[in-house]
């Protein structure tokens, strides 16, 4: 992966909280998170449900306000969404009344990227090729399988040619077999485009296979527990050596030990 030494995303003492009006309380989702992400890096966030992972990437995307600290993208404070950041959603979030192609073109209608019609067409075509959906331009999302829907979601995210790809558990709702294939596609796409990727998952295997770094986040308030470096050569998905290596098992065990207590805690509802 074309990792450089230039920081593209810098979070400093980032805190995010939500008002719980009914209980007249404030839920602190993330507390004093500091993280630097380099250009071209693939960072995976893992942690128990409700630990604030989604809040973190929502703060990078500019969807939610922060309650403290700062998030900067290319040294500019994030205040709103922008075309340099795109997002892939867990439930695909495709507009059901639009065809695959019209869904991918949505970003062009919402913002002026200064592209000519030919450039737009070329980009849509390129995105469709990247996710292997050529021939399905005129299909509607409800006609597609879960894996195909998510590939439309990825193609839409690629349409703006973003520097940063944010992915919130994109494969959580996809069956196990399709999921492995999608992981391979994700790795390939990010390798081909050289994008920086911030990826949330509940799967430790997915985290190790995709991430250059795995950031383990603890439960309420969300804080960084440990950052684990993963240095298997890429592409990893098509390399069957990776998954059966001793190092893989050790990494897996290490991360599981980090999240185990937290996961147990959330199941007990503490």
């Amino acid at each position: 992966m074309s990792k450089s030494n230039e920081n593209i995303i810098v979070a400093e003492d980032l805190s995010i909280s939500y008002d719980l009006h009914r209980e007249r309380k404030k839920l602190i989702a993330l507390q004093n998170i500091s993280l630097e992400i380099k250009k071209g890096e693939f960072v995976v966030l893992v942690g128990p449900s409700g630990c604030g992972k989604t809040s973190f990437i929502n703060a990078i995307s500019g969807l939610i306000p922060k309650s403290g600290g700062s998030v900067k993208v290319r040294d500019v404070e994030v205040t709103a969404p922008g075309p340099d950041r795109a997002m892939v959603f867990q439930d695909y979030a495709l507009l059901p009344w639009r065809t695959v192609e019209a869904n991918i073109r949505l970003p062009y209608e919402l913002q002026n990227l200064g592209l000519s019609e030919e450039e737009k067409q070329a980009r849509v075509k390129n995105a469709l090729e990247l996710v292997d959906l050529v021939g399905f331009e005129k299909s509607f999302p409800y006609e597609l399988s879960g894996g195909m829907k998510q590939r439309v979601g990825i193609a839409r995210a690629l349409a703006t040619n973003p520097d940063i790809l944010l992915a919130d558990e994109p494969f959580a709702a996809i069956d196990a077999m399709t999921r492995e294939a999608m992981q391979a596609e994700m790795e390939r796409i990010v390798m081909e485009t050289g994008q920086t990727c911030v990826f949330i998952t509940h799967s430790i295997d997915e985290a190790i296979l995709l991430g250059d770094r795995v950031v383990v986040i603890s439960y309420r308030p969300g804080q960084i527990k440990e950052i684990v470096d993963v240095d298997f050569p890429r592409p990893r998905m098509s390399n069957s050596e990776v998954k059966i290596s001793k190092k893989y098992a050790e990494l897996r065990d290490h991360i599981w030990n980090l999240v185990k207590d937290e996961a147990m805690q959330t199941t007990r509802g503490e």
Partner: peptide
């Protein structure tokens, strides 16, 4: 909500 979030991420203003 996720459709609204998606539209916002890809640059929609209130009218859009």
């Amino acid at each position: 909500k996720s459709l609204l979030a998606a539209a916002k991420v890809f640059g929609a203003n209130r009218t859009q």
